[in-house]
Simulated scan of single mutants.
Amino acid sequence: MVTSGLTSASPPKFVSLEEIMQAANGMRDMALVHQIVVDKDFRLKRVEPEPDSVQKIIKDTMHKAFWDVLRAQLAEEPPNYTQALNLLEEIKEGLFAVLLPQHTRIRQQISEILDTDLIKQQALQGTLDFKNYAQYVISVMSKLCAPIRDDKINELKETSDVIDTFRGILELLDLMQLDMANFTLQMARPDIIARSVDLERKKFADYLAIQTDLTAF
């Protein structure tokens, strides 16, 4: 009787690209957690494109086009508020993003004053005071921003050009969201430290499991 030289074996496990990416992301997460744990002054920072890079040129071109369209629309007779309405909606969402859970009254006030339907109605009636909304937004931000942003608030209050004012508002909102992220990170740091050992152990085990599967091919 001739027996086969082949023996049964488990089929090779297929490792998907998603699993590989998850493992890679896990290692990055682990490195980030480690950095937060060892560096008490760790802060998130804005990532800006390199000067003269393609990304920088594209970003600047798109931003300029947005503000040029807004300026042109507001200069029409009667003013065209299409871009302005989109901008106010974006600003409202930006303000919501920097509110804390206890800011219920401010949230309600923002919702009422920056009500989309109300603003659209004002635009149709020709009573929309775009600059007045800018001043309201600045007043809200002055109550919410960190003291380090006070100079920027004062600069916005003194800016006369409405387009420059709203451009500055968006830039400041971006900084305030970064401040909020860093504040949240600092508040969570004790818990991150307490959980870091278990988290790093799990992430490293996941990474090793993927590496083992890859070497099986």
Rank of each mutant, 00 (worst) to 15 (best):
A24H: 12
E19Y: 01
S16V: 03
S53G: 11
D115N: 15
V54R: 06
V69S: 10
A84E: 04
P12A: 07
A75I: 03
N80H: 11
Q109L: 15
D41V: 06
K59D: 10
Q35M: 10
N25C: 01
T82F: 11
I58R: 09
A134N: 09
A146R: 14
I91P: 02
T61R: 11
I138F: 03
Q73H: 09
K13M: 07
T82H: 08
Q135K: 09
K45I: 05
W67L: 08
L95A: 04
R107V: 07
A84N: 07
S53L: 03
L99C: 07
E112Q: 13
V137N: 04
L17K: 03
N86R: 15
V37F: 07
A134P: 00
L70Y: 05
K143I: 00
R43H: 10
T61G: 13
F130H: 05
Q122S: 04
F42Q: 09
D39Y: 05
F14Y: 08
E112C: 01
I58L: 15
Q135S: 09
K40D: 14
P49S: 11
A123P: 00
S139L: 08
Q108Y: 07
R71Y: 02
Q135M: 04
A84W: 00
I58S: 04
I110T: 03
F14L: 13
R107A: 14
L114M: 05
P147Q: 12
A84V: 14
I110W: 06
V15F: 01
H103L: 01
F42P: 03
S139Y: 01
L95H: 05
Q125A: 00
R71G: 08
V37K: 08
F130G: 06
L44K: 10
E18G: 01
E90T: 13
I138K: 02
A75C: 06
L70I: 09
E18F: 05
G94T: 13
A134F: 01
L85S: 11
Q109V: 10
F14T: 10
A97C: 01
D52F: 13
I110F: 06
Q55R: 15
L17V: 02
L118P: 00
E89D: 08
I106Y: 04
I57E: 12
H34K: 09
Q122R: 11
L74E: 03
A72L: 10
I106Q: 06
M141L: 06
E89T: 08
H63N: 13
L128M: 12
I106W: 03
N132C: 00
T116A: 09
T61L: 07
L128H: 02
R105N: 11
L144S: 03
A146K: 12
R28W: 07
Y133G: 02
E19H: 02
N132T: 05
R46D: 14
Q125H: 14
D39L: 06
R28P: 03
P51N: 15
A72Q: 14
T82A: 10
K13G: 00
M21S: 14
S16Q: 03
K59Y: 13
A31R: 12
N25L: 12
D68T: 11
Q121V: 04
P51W: 13
W67K: 10
L144C: 01
G126E: 07
E76V: 05
L124R: 15
K131R: 08
L85D: 06
T61V: 04
A84R: 02
Q73A: 09
S53E: 12
V38E: 09
A72S: 15
A24Y: 15
K64N: 07
A123S: 00
A24P: 04
V54M: 04
R46S: 14
Q109H: 04
T116H: 12
L17E: 06
Q135H: 05
L88G: 04
